[in-house]
Amino acid sequence: MATSAAFFAIGLLMWFFLAAVALEVAGEMPVPVFLGIALLFVTRHRRRRRRSRLGAAGIAPIPYRQPPPPRPVPVRPEAAWARAMERFAALRGEYAAYECDPMAVLRLPALSDVTVPSTGRFVEAFAEAQALETDAFPPVGHASTFVAAVERAERAWRAARDAAERIRLSNLAPEERNAVERVIKLLTTARDSDNDAERLTAYARARSELARLDRAGVIHMPRTAQAALEVAGRGQLPA
């Protein structure tokens, strides 16, 4: 590119020289004056080309650089422990709500059966976190262990619920599934009926059928759910 520009400048100067000779012969302008004008023109032309090249280089896109990831804000051990205590209390409440609801147990029986691998892992993780729970902030090492145990229990609970949702009543034989569905209908009738006699009769039949299913190992009804049915069977609606 520089060679072509030099040839262009030389050619332009030769053209101006010939034009100057012609003008001087014609008596229009002396050759030195004309050549001075030509040299000035060529110099300005080269400067403009140089500025153009520099400007083009100056606006070239800058390669994108990934910004560094933000540094995590350190969490004080006391704050992490307090947050884990809140999460564990919420998990305990969700687990207790399931175990106190006979209808929920009948719809997701795998969640109360520790022989189901996902349920067994949750029960173990929950027991571990519960054993590490303290009323006041413990030593830092104990607090960190508790926080990790709560995280494991939460993950295990979600996995156990997901598995129970997929399984539902598919593990039962057709006769067993029909029996569970009859109990669900009886409990629905007892819950929705405005007739006390009908409601109490439905609860009594449901309790009798559930006892039979529990003895056969078809349904593992937690004691808290059984207690809720007993309260309802005495004339009080379950919460």
Rank of each mutant, 00 (worst) to 15 (best):
residue 105 V to E: 13
residue 105 V to C: 14
residue 105 V to M: 13
residue 105 V to G: 11
residue 107 R to G: 09
residue 107 R to H: 07
residue 109 P to C: 10
residue 109 P to H: 13
residue 109 P to F: 08
residue 110 A to T: 11
residue 112 S to C: 06
residue 113 D to C: 04
residue 115 T to E: 09
residue 116 V to M: 12
residue 116 V to Y: 09
residue 117 P to N: 14
residue 117 P to E: 10
residue 117 P to L: 13
residue 117 P to M: 09
residue 117 P to H: 12
residue 118 S to R: 15
residue 120 G to L: 03
residue 121 R to A: 14
residue 124 E to F: 10
residue 124 E to A: 15
residue 124 E to K: 14
residue 124 E to Q: 13
residue 125 A to E: 11
residue 125 A to D: 14
residue 127 A to L: 13
residue 127 A to E: 14
residue 130 Q to N: 14
residue 131 A to L: 00
residue 131 A to T: 02
residue 131 A to K: 00
residue 133 E to N: 07
residue 133 E to S: 06
residue 135 D to P: 00
residue 137 F to C: 02
residue 138 P to K: 04
residue 138 P to C: 03
residue 139 P to K: 01
residue 139 P to M: 02
residue 140 V to E: 00
residue 140 V to N: 00
residue 141 G to F: 01
residue 142 H to C: 01
residue 143 A to M: 02
residue 144 S to Q: 02
residue 145 T to K: 07
residue 145 T to E: 02
residue 145 T to W: 01
residue 146 F to S: 00
residue 146 F to H: 00
residue 147 V to L: 02
residue 147 V to F: 03
residue 147 V to W: 03
residue 147 V to E: 03
residue 148 A to H: 02
residue 148 A to T: 02
residue 149 A to I: 03
residue 151 E to T: 02
residue 152 R to T: 03
residue 152 R to P: 00
residue 155 R to E: 10
residue 155 R to D: 09
residue 156 A to V: 05
residue 158 R to M: 08
residue 160 A to H: 12
residue 160 A to V: 05
residue 161 R to T: 07
residue 162 D to G: 09
residue 164 A to Y: 12
residue 165 E to W: 11
residue 165 E to C: 15
residue 165 E to P: 09
residue 166 R to H: 12
residue 166 R to V: 14
residue 166 R to G: 15
residue 167 I to P: 06
residue 167 I to E: 15
residue 168 R to W: 10
residue 169 L to A: 14
residue 173 A to Y: 10
residue 174 P to D: 14
residue 175 E to F: 08
residue 175 E to L: 12
residue 175 E to P: 02
residue 176 E to I: 03
residue 177 R to C: 10
residue 177 R to P: 07
residue 177 R to N: 15
residue 178 N to R: 15
residue 178 N to E: 11
residue 181 E to M: 10
residue 181 E to P: 06
residue 181 E to Q: 11
residue 181 E to Y: 10
residue 181 E to T: 11
residue 184 I to Q: 13
residue 186 L to A: 04
residue 187 L to N: 03
residue 188 T to H: 08
residue 189 T to L: 08
residue 190 A to R: 12
residue 190 A to L: 04
residue 190 A to W: 08
residue 192 D to K: 08
residue 192 D to Q: 09
residue 193 S to I: 04
residue 193 S to G: 03
residue 194 D to R: 15
residue 195 N to R: 13
residue 195 N to W: 12
residue 196 D to M: 15
residue 196 D to H: 15
residue 197 A to M: 11
residue 197 A to R: 14
residue 198 E to I: 12
residue 198 E to R: 15
residue 198 E to P: 08
residue 198 E to S: 11
residue 198 E to W: 10
residue 199 R to D: 08
